[in-house]
Computed example of a mutant assay.
Amino acid sequence: MKQHQTNSNKVFAYLKNGIKQKVKTQKLPLVTFFLFIIVFICSFLWSNGPLPNVTVDYNLAKEEMYHCTLHRIIDGDTVVANCPLKNPKLVNIRIWGMDAPETNQIPWGEKATNALNRIFLMNKHDIITILIRDIDQYNRYVGQIFINNKEIDVGLQMVSEGFAVVYKQYNNDPQYLYHEDLAKSHKKGIWQHPGPQQNPAAWRKVNPF
């Protein structure tokens, strides 16, 4: 973010100085000069990628169910979906009820992401059902995701396979807690060895993004 802002400041300073020079010398017609500016800005944005933190101005209602399609998986507990089917737009969905190791928690973050990929690939997920629960501090929708006509709760499946913990701050569902205890007792996934992967929230506090 900081590097992107520095580059942007340099570009706009350059343009500002350029405008002053062209106005003084009047060597270029006004239309030609502004065309030059537009091309320069487009070239800059193309080489540096889209601006960060771009959000979609689209509202999904809390406690409502939506039929969507999966666009891509970001990490072990976040996906991008097209919602709803009738008027699809890209939205970030933080999976409700569970917390997976972060990508930088090597190798557990990658393992959690792979596990989430596998859950979607092993089941029919052309259409997924999302129950919107909340909106988090990063402006992501928090949703409970179901596949196979609501037969499989994706978050619960991640907990059951041992690649996520129950996010007890927001979820006290007995079924989730039961399956977490089973995963612990069978030493599945993150429960194979003690470590910070067993408490991603605590790890984030000492390893801020």
Rank of each mutant, 00 (worst) to 15 (best):
M1K: 07
H4V: 13
V11T: 00
K22R: 13
K24L: 15
K24A: 13
L28R: 12
P29E: 14
P29Q: 15
F36Y: 07
C42W: 08
S43N: 15
L45K: 10
G49F: 07
L51F: 13
P52V: 05
V54S: 10
L60G: 06
A61C: 12
Y66P: 11
H71F: 10
I73K: 13
D75C: 10
V80L: 06
N82Q: 15
K86A: 14
N92D: 07
R94K: 02
R94H: 07
W96D: 14
W96L: 02
D99L: 01
A100Y: 04
A100E: 08
P101C: 00
T103K: 12
I106L: 09
K111P: 00
T113N: 10
T113F: 06
R118C: 06
I119G: 12
F120W: 10
M122E: 15
I128F: 05
T129M: 11
R133G: 10
I135S: 02
D136P: 06
R140T: 10
Q144S: 08
I147P: 11
N148A: 13
I152S: 06
D153Q: 09
D153F: 13
V154C: 02
F163N: 04
V166Q: 03
Y170K: 01
D173P: 04
Y178R: 09
D181C: 05
A183D: 07
N199P: 02
A202F: 05
R204W: 04
